[in-house]
Design a protein around this nucleic acid. Structure first.
Lengths: 193, 193
DNA sequence: CCTTTGCAAACGAACGTTCATTCGTACGCG
DNA sequence: CGCGTACGAATGAACGTTCGTTTGCAAAGG
């Protein structure tokens, strides 16, 4: 019964924090806010975590690793560039809908990391972006994609799925599958040759 | 000599604040940060502004008005839906590049407004979105656009130009015109029938 | 002279975090 | 079984710092 497994208090704190960070931002979320949201006093939080920044750090690097290891898998695929890009798009869209809070914090709040973690995080991010751009360029050289500026295409694609974090709510009129299909079709249409 | 006209200190404060809000976020920007950035002491700021929130309020509502009055103009155009959407896209892209700081704060930091301004702002925003969606639907009914979910299309379009705020720097390799053309082509390709 | 502008000083409030203490529970050992 | 010890978890109080803002006063300039 893995789904009934009791979450550790640390995990509960992290998940709650991710939601608060998404709703109010990292700086505007106080440890007292967070404590209240998990039915504790602020001081009690420190039995489970080391610092406020540690929470943000875990969120940021966990998600960075998730995206990077997916990138590993995609690069190993025996498939066309279009298929690879589509797989990555699917990853972005699904993650946005299944783990919205975490990814929002990951996207918007990483700038509040302190050094040396800030630099380390930016390096991971740049690594991912470079590899994504490389896939786009490959698709262009073999003629699957229109010849566009890879940077423009990359950021446009990233941003296209970004609003999902803010907007999508499970159980609403549209199913996740419908939204996923629509978004992917929209973006790929802008990219295909 | 309108361009040489001396900016009032209030305007300088607002513009500087917009940049700081973009870089660090509203909550993480202190009045002492802002004061230092305009070569004043924190207390002196209050000779020119009423409160920190007033600055944010001005940024948010100024931009809301700008987008809404552009929407007025576009709706009055005698043109195809595609042309109208293109005009709005152009507005978004150009504003993003010409007045990036202000628009970023407008996009990301409005949630820190207090009531009743928060509700008022959300109403303006919804108004704009509804009218934009209406244009998209018109384009679909007359067959200019593919039949997609208008909400999905709307947010995808909005988000597509969002990264420009973070990324575009005047004077870099690409000119504003090139970027504008690329982005618009990319988005319209995803929309056209 | 009077308005505008700037600043030092100070305000109460809130911030993240630390500390000593307490309570409950589980384990080791006679 | 009964007692001592260890420990995870929670707490209120307090720390030093920073927050947005106010006050009182001095200098500037039309």
């Amino acid at each position: 019964m893995p789904s009934t497994q009791k979450k550790s208090k640390k995990v509960i704190i992290q998940e709650t924090a991710a939601r608060l960070f998404r709703d109010k931002g990292y700086s505007a979320t106080s440890m007292r806010d967070l404590a209240e949201a998990v039915n504790l006093k602020a001081s009690s939080l420190y039995n489970h975590i080391d610092s406020k920044e540690e929470i943000l750090r875990d969120i940021c690097f966990e998600n960075a690793q998730r995206f990077l290891s997916s990138m590993d898998e995609v690069e190993a695929m025996q498939a066309s560039a279009a298929a690879k890009v589509k797989a990555l798009l699917q990853l972005h869209v699904r993650t946005a809908m299944e783990d919205a809070t975490s990814v929002t914090a990951f996207n918007d709040e990483w700038r509040h990391l302190n050094e040396p973690y800030l630099t380390e995080f930016k390096n991971l991010r740049r690594d991912y972006e470079q590899r994504f751009k490389q896939l786009l360029r490959e698709g262009m050289t073999v003629g699957e994609f229109r010849r566009v500026d890879a940077t423009v295409a990359l950021y446009t694609i990233f941003s296209s799925v970004r609003w999902l974090y803010d907007w999508f709510q499970p159980g609403k009129s549209r199913t996740a599958e419908e939204v996923e299909a629509e978004v992917i079709a929209f973006v790929l249409a802008g990219l295909k040759a």
